[in-house]
């Protein structure tokens, strides 16, 4: 078995309770509660190989967190199989978690009231990291993540970006083979996000750490991941190369034109006008329907052009469009691994 994460027919079903209303209802709830079954994760399959950096994305409530929690052993699946690093996460917790790292963007693993340096020392003891390794890793991360400025500050006083850097360091100190990053850039500004991304890239490329990254921010994925998995309504609707996804479902391009004079309706076949301000017009068209040169040719036949520019749609927008329109969901509903 060469994969580091093996997931087969994984299902997690939750009971969602409906509480009785009222004073007596509060008592009744103790004995008799009605519920609905919700399939948070519904028959998913995937394998991740050592050294991969995989983006795991999907809309809110699609099942991302539930999957990560099953992979880290915090949730027990309703059915199906999970093997991570050779372990069944929820059965062999103590030995299993020695070899993984996890960062949950919304929470910290550090001690709230203690200075960062104390938290890290405690983690050395908790993970039984040998002194030389600890010192080597700490020195490296201090430099890359620039931790020195707040090494002696209590964690509760750190800014979100600082705290995230600290948490990343904490998750990497024991040289885990595999790291789960759940929304590591949530709530951060652009500069802080970029810094976190560089670090993720560094540990994946230079140290060969396998990384499963869940995120809301498609820019994270665009920057970091070759492979993406998209989950929606508890099902994996795409698993494959990011550029394959973009080629197949994306490919929207924009043609921005500045005309030499104002035209009331500068229509163009195979392209839609999405913005018009005086003599500036933006067209949208699909790469596989029509070529840019063809459009420009057609335009110059009928209108006088001052300037023009062709842009690809940003990846974020493409992916958002993919799951907003549920392109994948309708397409690949019954196929298991659509892209491979």
């Amino acid at each position: 078995m060469s994969s580091i994460i093996h997931v087969q027919d994984l299902v997690k079903t939750f009971k969602i309770y409906h509480d009785h209303k009222g004073y007596l209802g509060a008592i009744r709830n103790l004995f008799d509660r009605k519920y609905d079954l919700v399939h948070a994760v519904d028959q998913i399959n995937f394998d991740i190989h050592p050294g991969e950096l995989v983006g795991y994305i999907g809309p809110n409530g699609a099942g991302k967190s539930t999957t990560i929690k099953m992979l880290t052993g915090l949730l027990v699946p309703t059915s199906g199989e999970v093997r991570v690093n050779g372990y069944i996460p929820w059965k062999e917790r103590k030995t299993y978690v020695k070899h993984i790292g996890a960062v949950f963007g919304q929470r910290t693993t550090l001690w709230w009231d203690l200075p960062l340096s104390d938290s890290l020392t405690l983690l050395q003891h908790i993970y039984e990291i040998p002194d030389p390794l600890y010192k080597k890793n700490l020195a490296m991360f201090r430099e890359i993540l620039e931790l020195d400025a707040f090494m002696n500050t209590p964690v509760r006083s750190l800014s979100l970006g600082q705290r995230m850097r600290a948490d990343l360091c904490a998750a990497m100190l024991h040289d885990p083979k595999l790291v789960f990053l759940d929304e590591p850039t949530i709530g951060l500004d652009v500069v802080a996000k970029e810094r976190i991304r560089e670090f993720i890239q560094f540990i994946n490329r230079e140290r060969g750490t396998t990384i499963l990254l869940t995120t809301h921010d498609i820019a994270d994925v665009a920057k970091l991941c070759e492979r993406v998995m998209i989950i929606d309504h508890g099902k994996i609707v795409f698993d494959g190369k990011l550029d394959h996804l973009l080629r197949t479902y994306g490919g929207r391009r924009f043609l921005s034109v500045q005309f030499a004079e104002i035209y009331p309706e500068p229509v163009l076949e195979n392209a839609d006008i999405i913005k018009m301000e005086g003599n500036n017009v933006v067209y949208s068209f699909m790469r596989d329907t029509v070529s840019a040169s063809h459009l420009i040719h057609k335009l110059s036949e009928s209108y006088r052009i001052a300037d023009l520019e062709v842009n690809d749609q940003p990846i974020e927008d493409t992916i958002r469009e993919i799951y907003e329109k549920q392109l994948l969901y309708n397409h690949n509903h019954d196929k298991k691994n659509p892209a491979s």
């Binding site: 103590k94 949950f104 910290t108 993970y127």
Partner: peptide
């Protein structure tokens, strides 16, 4: 708030 989950992710009793 998930604090207990964080403890479960550490290799100690």
């Amino acid at each position: 708030r998930g604090g207990f989950d964080q403890l479960l992710l550490r290799p100690v009793n």
